[in-house]
Amino acid sequence: MLKTPLLLLSLLSICSANSVAQNPVRNSESVLPTGEQVAAHINSRDEGEAVSRKLSIVMRDKRGKTRHRETMSYRQYYANEKRTVIFYLSPKNIKDTAFLTYDYNDPQLEDNQWLYLPALRKVRRISASDRGDYFLGTDMTYEDIKLETRVSTADFNFQTIDTCEVDGYPGLQIEGTPKSQTIAKELGYSKTLSCVDKAVWMVRQSQFWDIKGNLLKTVIVSNIEQIQGIWSQQNIDVENHKTGHSTRLIFSDIDYQRPVPDDIFTTNAIKRGL
């Protein structure tokens, strides 16, 4: 709720800029919204002011060997930033690891990120340019984890290509291209292609190309349901085409109404754990 006025403002400015910068795509039935308009819809979607949820992570390598992680995560929007924290609960070798991020609305500000490493019993500051690194063995990067279901208009230019369909859900296909070579290198992506469900404004499927232009990975978002009035994804499957490794994220016990205490988003809290 705190973020809505800001998003409306940004939506208005994006729409006005697009009227000059982009020509709308026309298909046989109607004029499609521009890529920037679609991105703005995605980013203004109600995600709840706060959420707490369990996240199970299943990682599978190309030989079929699987590893499991159980985590608990919390997210809260504030006036100027979004704060997210993920606590690892099991297995033993990664238990008590925790990740904290402050993601600022102002794209000029670098995010602040910390990782608690139980073997060192220390909170380590992580540089924001680590965002293209893979997050704790998964096929999601730190940036993917931070964005959740949103897209980064600070890093990408979006263009609507066509309509699309995933599992019978009609959508809009948008292409994202990094705004600079530096951003492409930082994120590890030269292009993204996403199918956005226009009924709920959520990405249902994305493909990512690496900086050499090779298809890198495919992300499928499924089991999208309304929980406490908010559209929520419950499964995300990521397949890395280069390594054959895949990751499944399973969200459960999603709760947008339980208050999340402010002091859980602190380095002290990630040190103490849950």
Binding site: E110, N112, Q113, R124, R125, I126, S127, A128, S129, D130
Partner: peptide, 11 residues
């Protein structure tokens, strides 16, 4: 003290 600057962390 610690802080991050681009690819660097000083501590």
């Amino acid at each position: 003290f610690s802080n991050a600057f681009d690819s660097w962390v000083v501590r």
